[in-house]
């Protein structure tokens, strides 16, 4: 399979997978070896991405360099915005 066709197939599979559903995974192909990189939301999503790609025809092996995004604690982070200036704009 042509490299660009396989790339399109992989990106489509990653986008449409119930457990992946991601458009911003970086996909590189060298001689049938697919490297996935970028950030995902969870360990399950990371493993599901590699699994979804591995089963495609034309893919010989998958290097899974995806990392799970680290999230900070949400609470206590406030930012001030000065408002009520609409009349002066």
């Amino acid at each position: 399979m042509e490299r660009d066709a396989l790339l399109g197939l992989i990106r489509n599979r990653l986008a449409n997978s119930v457990e992946v559903g991601a458009l911003d995974i970086i996909v590189e192909i060298v001689d049938g070896t697919v490297r996935l990189s970028g950030e995902v939301d969870s360990r399950q999503q990371r493993e599901a991405a590699a699994g979804a790609v591995h089963e495609l025809a034309g893919v010989h092996s998958v290097i899974n360099d995806l990392v799970v995004r680290e999230m900070k604690r949400p609470d206590g982070h406030h930012q001030m915005i000065i408002s009520a200036e609409r009349g002066r704009r």
Binding site: R69, E70, M71, K72, R73, P74, H77, H78, Q79, M80, I81
Partner: peptide, 8 residues
């Protein structure tokens, strides 16, 4: 990189 931010 957090689940929400609060704007005051």
């Amino acid at each position: 990189r957090r689940y929400y931010i609060v704007y005051d």
